[in-house]
Structure formats: C-alpha cells, structure tokens
Computed example of a mutant assay.
Amino acid sequence: MNETKSPDARDVERLFASEFGAQYTDRNRAIDPRKPAFFHDLFRRHGIRRVLECGSNLGLNLTDCVGDPEMDVWGIDIQRGAIRDAWASRAGGNFVVGSLFDLPFRDGRFDLAFTCGVLIHVPPAGIRDAIREMHRVSSRYLLCAEYHDDRDEVAVPWRGQAAALFRRNYKKLFLELFPDLVVVEEGYKGQEEGFDRITWHLFRKP
C-alpha cells in the first residue's frame, strides 16, 4: 500500500464541497453521449428502474435514464452548486445534496445504487462505510465504475492533493465486504468509447 498519509474519511468530502469541487464541476460540464447511453442500456437490460447515482455531480451520466418515463432517477452529491445546476438543466430526475457516508434514503429504496469515478476519491478510512451505504439503499444491484489497480490500494497525487485519488481492486473490495454478491456483468471502457479508462462491475444481491 502507498505510504502517503491518508486523510480522514470526511476530508475529501469537504474538499469537494468547497471551491475545489466547484472547479471540478466546471471542468466537467460536457459528456460523451455514449456514456449515459451505456448506463441506460445496461440498466434496462437488467430490468432496473429505480436508480441512484452516488456522486452524481451535474447528473450527466443519468441523462438517458432521466429521459426514460419508466425510470425513477435520483442523484446525490456533496457539491451544492452541481446539484443546483442539475435541477436547472435536467428535464426530470431528482437531485439532492448529501453525503455518501450517510445516504438519506430508506433501506432498499432503489433497484440499483452506483458510482462512476467517485469511490476513487474516498480515502481508506471511509471506503468501506461508503460501500455499505450503497449496499443498504439498494434492493437488487450495485455498480461501480472506477480506476482499477491489481494491488489493493494505491494513492495517486491529483490536482495538488496528495491523497485525493485512490486506484483499487474494487471488485475484490466489494466481494470481501459482501461475499454473497454475484458479478453479473463487468468490463472496461476506454477513452475511445467515451470513458476515462474505467473498469466496471455490476453486482447482484442474493
């Protein structure tokens, strides 16, 4: 494991709630249309209708899902400006300000809870709590789409922050926490497909 001192579980969350997070939002106001199409197609294929994206920012990953009248679409993010803009720009969907460590939803509220490029920013002190919360609010599926590393965890300096990005073996981590999860689909999406080199895993709860 990298020897960089890990921040407290809430430190990076406070960072993304600040001007640093607002700048992140401004850098990511456009999306390749293949990305929301991928998520929508994946969810429809598995009969997923009630969706929560944890760390949704502007809600761009949910664009195609929001446009589907059969889907109940939610996003949550710690960055207030992003949530405000998500409400202003989306033609539907529900977006709330909140913490990944304390999701304001009842147990099993959604068919699926997912992240895309979000768990990479959760420090070691909070990663298991974040995954447990995702597991708690989902009745059927979990999806993570993150930067993979065969090693358990590697801290990567990112935009002037020594420990704000962590590559991990996320599949291994999810299955260690919840051994009864079943991997139903997984893959890799590169820049030539509209993604930023992410490895994704769709898990089904028993």
Rank of each mutant, 00 (worst) to 15 (best):
L62M: 09
L62K: 06
T63I: 15
T63C: 02
T63F: 01
D64K: 14
D64A: 08
D64S: 02
C65D: 11
C65F: 00
C65K: 01
V66P: 05
V66M: 13
V66N: 06
V66A: 01
G67P: 03
G67V: 03
D68M: 11
D68K: 05
D68E: 13
P69T: 12
P69S: 06
P69H: 09
P69W: 08
E70C: 05
E70K: 08
M71Q: 08
M71S: 08
D72E: 15
D72W: 02
V73W: 00
V73F: 00
V73L: 06
W74L: 02
G75A: 08
G75P: 02
D77I: 00
D77V: 04
D77F: 08
D77S: 09
D77C: 07
I78M: 00
I78A: 01
Q79Y: 00
R80K: 14
R80L: 12
G81E: 15
A82H: 10
A82R: 01
A82V: 08
I83Q: 10
I83N: 04
R84W: 07
R84A: 15
D85W: 12
A86L: 09
A86K: 04
A86D: 09
W87A: 12
W87N: 07
A88E: 14
A88C: 07
A88M: 14
A91D: 14
G92C: 04
G93S: 10
N94K: 13
N94C: 04
N94W: 04
F95D: 05
V96D: 01
V96A: 14
V96G: 03
G98E: 08
G98V: 02
S99R: 08
L100P: 01
L100I: 15
L100F: 11
D102N: 14
L103V: 03
L103M: 11
P104L: 04
F105M: 13
F105K: 14
F105S: 13
R106V: 10
R106E: 13
G108C: 10
G108S: 09
R109N: 09
R109F: 15
R109H: 15
R109P: 00
F110T: 00
F110G: 02
F110V: 03
F110Q: 05
D111W: 00
D111F: 00
L112V: 15
L112K: 00
